[in-house]
């Protein structure tokens, strides 16, 4: 404890200290300690956010002077821009598929690994590895795996077709406006499930054995124990994962950017990729920042809905 704080609190002892209670004259010191991160936050987050908001009312290409256009950028995006509607649809498609799949698969894997099997650390390491591998390298490998004629993923289907004479063709993954999104989703899941799994694994280890024992005594079957004990007990974790993964899914960028470039015909283009294109390829900074604010509004609304809904299904009992 620093000399300054012990002086103002009058006593060096922590006795009587309670969280959430300000002592007169202590605020300034707290702010002082917060200052380094507050300065960083102000310069690199807060001021740019305000600047971006201001910029969304201008037409600016980074070089020539910005021209004030009022709400034109928003009006154009919301009512005229056909590409915006397309990327919005794509982004929702990604969000409603990626988030549930990631949760279900992550939970299943966590439960499987929570059975006290041997070499648990090794499995955890293997499943977590994709999370820390470089997305660009991974996306290029996936590109290569998914190639129509020369890709490994399709090779066995072709071999089967050649051997049997059946007319079965594997998906033309990244050349098809139908399959391009599933291809991006597969890559995203492969990359992120390890994260979900590790968080769930931690939550599972916090579920007290006594609850399972009690359920067993009451005659609950394995699947009933999973449904009525495990799922409610990890619901707080589920809520956390839903929120952060939904935000992540709405901001999907690197996976489609490297693997499909948003194609074919914008079939896999996301909102964030469209922001990037407008800002750095089309010289439409104002439109890009307006898009970023619309995306913020969407994420904000969805997160708000989530926090409202959580009261109905999230349990915060600790099981003590």
């Amino acid at each position: 404890m620093s000399a300054a704080s012990s002086k103002s609190s009058g006593t060096p002892s922590n006795k009587g200290f309670r969280f959430g209670k300000w002592r007169p004259g202590q605020q300034n010191e707290a702010y002082l300690f917060l200052l380094p991160s507050l300065i960083g936050f102000a310069f690199f987050v807060l001021i740019p956010i305000i600047g971006a908001f201001a910029l969304s009312f201008f037409d600016w290409n980074l070089i020539s002077p910005a021209k004030f256009v009022g709400v034109d950028n928003y009006k154009q995006l919301l009512f005229q821009d056909a590409v915006f509607r397309k990327v919005l649809g794509n982004t929702f498609y990604y969000a409603v598929t990626i988030v549930p799949l990631q949760l279900i698969l992550g939970l299943v894997m966590a439960v499987a690994l929570n059975q006290g099997i041997r070499g648990l650390e090794l499995y955890r390491l293997i499943y977590f590895m994709p999370v820390i591998t470089n997305i660009v390298a991974v996306a290029i490998v996936f590109q290569w795996l998914l190639n129509r004629d020369f890709g490994v993923a399709n090779a066995w289907v072709w071999q089967l077709a050649d051997a049997t004479g059946w007319h079965i063709a594997p998906p033309d993954w990244l050349n098809s406006s139908f399959w391009a999104k599933p291809a991006v989703i597969i890559l995203t899941l492969w990359k992120n499930i390890g994260f979900t799994m590790v968080i769930y694994l931690a939550a599972l280890q916090g579920v007290p054995e006594s609850l399972y024992d009690a359920a067993k005594v009451d005659g609950a079957t394995g699947s009933q124990r999973f449904r009525f004990v495990t799922i409610p007990m990890v619901s707080a974790t589920t809520f956390f994962l839903v929120v952060i993964q939904m935000i992540g899914a709405f901001q999907l960028f690197a996976e489609p950017f490297v693997m499909t470039r948003g194609g074919p015909a914008q079939a896999s283009l996301t909102i964030v990729m469209y922001i990037y294109q407008n800002a750095f390829e089309f010289g439409r900074m104002g439109k890009a920042t307006a898009l970023a604010w619309i995306l913020f509004a969407i994420i904000f609304i969805f997160t708000l809905i989530q926090t409202r809904l959580q009261r109905r299904w999230v349990h915060y009992e600790t099981g003590d």
């Binding site: 590409v83 050349n175 098809s176 194609g263 074919p264 015909a265 390829e281 089309f282 439409r284």
Partner: peptide
């Protein structure tokens, strides 16, 4: 041109190149 080509012309042509 970049915007016209990148957001309108290329995507439309891609749907031809993809055979769809």
């Amino acid at each position: 041109w970049n915007e016209l080509s990148g957001s309108i012309i290329s995507p439309a042509l891609q749907s031809i190149w993809s055979g769809e």
